[in-house]
């Protein structure tokens, strides 16, 4: 029942890659093919369990449109995890990843766990970006990688949960200072006392724990 942690996530990436759909699939377990353009940011929340601990994910689903870029940057602050999404059927969304990544690194804390997501894996016939390319990009930039389909729900759970696992590990390793809310992690009220003693030993950098 009691929440041990609260993690703030942001979902970023070009417009139309399926950010809002991923969120909806994760929080409501449904798919909605037509979505209104996101204005600024939308929110979703869900509880997950990791290592027997209840963790609440507070997800900020940002607008992908270029013109909102300066606004969405304001929202990065205090995120513990980011889902960087591109559309495997649109090469340009993949090409823009570097810009997104720079943005994310610049406006959030350096320990933020970033999960690279190639969405729309159900549209195999229209694929423009090979899975290997995604993997290579992730490896090069120290990201976790997954291909998902918000439509079929394939890997959606995993994407969110694996990100949380990674954050959780970082907490265990003491990489995250959980008492600093700028890291996007909040401790549940009941656990504040016990967990406050963590943090300290310098944890090693985690290599990608993704799947696929």
């Amino acid at each position: 029942m009691a929440t041990a942690y609260l993690f703030k996530y942001i979902i970023i990436g070009d417009t139309g890659v399926g950010k809002s759909c991923l969120l909806l699939q994760f929080t409501d377990k449904r798919f909605q093919p037509v979505h209104d353009l996101t204005i600024g940011v939308e929110f979703g929340a869900r509880m997950i369990t990791i290592d027997g601990k209840q963790i609440k994910l507070q997800i900020w689903d940002t607008a992908g449109q270029e013109s909102f870029r300066s606004i969405t940057r304001s929202y990065y602050r205090g995120a513990a995890g980011a889902l960087l999404v591109y559309d495997i059927t649109r090469r340009d969304t993949f090409n823009h990843l570097t810009t997104w990544l720079e943005d994310a690194r610049q406006h959030s804390n350096s320990n933020m766990v970033i999960m690279l997501i190639g969405n729309k894996s159900d549209l195999e016939s229209r694929r423009e970006v090979k899975k290997e390319e995604g993997e290579a990009f992730a490896r090069e930039h120290g990201l976790i990688f997954m291909e998902t389909s918000a439509k079929t729900a394939s890997n959606v759970e995993e994407a969110f949960i694996n990100t949380a696992k990674e954050i959780y590990e970082k907490i265990q390793e003491g990489v995250f200072d959980i008492n600093n809310e700028a890291n996007g992690i909040k401790i549940g009220p009941q656990h504040a006392a016990t967990n406050a003693t963590l943090a300290g030993n310098q944890g090693g950098q985690q290599a990608g724990g993704g799947c696929c």
Partner: peptide, 12 residues
Amino acid sequence: FHKTAALFLYGQ
């Protein structure tokens, strides 16, 4: 109000 703020800043 939040959406309103975002749209004000949207820069149109």
